[in-house]
Amino acid sequence: MGALLYTLLLAAYVAFGGPTQPPAEETVVVLPGEHGKIGGVVVHRGSQEVVLDKAYASSHLGLDGDLERQQASPERVQQEFGKTVAALPAAPASYLLYFVMGRDELTDESKSRLKEVLAEIRNRPVPDVLLIGHTDTVGGNQSNDVLSRQRAERVRDILVRAGIKVNRIVVTGRGERDLLVPTRDNIEEPRNRGVEINVR
């Protein structure tokens, strides 16, 4: 009797793929986007493909190996996955600062924004700060990459003087890739020479 039970258990074990693949179901649920936009997720299983591009669109892969499209609900998501959703980090905060033309000094408006930035950094339990410098389209791409980074470094110095730890700050330059005001090449545009501050 014991031997029969053992054989049956072993057969079941092997049928489910042994230790590397214990039987498991897989569920994917798309949630409403934070800015209303949903680009979607494509679920691939072998040659099967399910596109989920609406809020609460869901796919379910059962133990029988069938990939099915389903519809989830806010209630079910809260009940089954609420704890995991609640563990998401706070959304990064974004600010844009400007210097007075040709001077190593922030504009008056940016000086008051800087106070908000510092408050946001101090409010976060383990803040890290990404500074992204930008340029207008005057000059070459490579020199603008360097220039945009230098601009971000000036903001880093300001933050460090205000007491933010330098090892919490990462500096980068985006050159002329993100124009706040789109222009043709070689156009002076002060609004494109800002430094973006990402507080996370």
């Binding site: 039987p23 179901e25 994917v28 986007g33 691939h44 299983r45 591009d53 892969l61």
Partner: peptide, 21 residues
């Protein structure tokens, strides 16, 4: 990647769960 599938992300917020029924 999950044990049986791959999710390609086009831009969104989503949940993935792998588990016993």
């Amino acid at each position: 990647h999950t044990p049986s599938s791959i999710m390609g992300v086009r831009g969104t917020k989503f949940i993935v769960h792998v588990g016993q029924p």
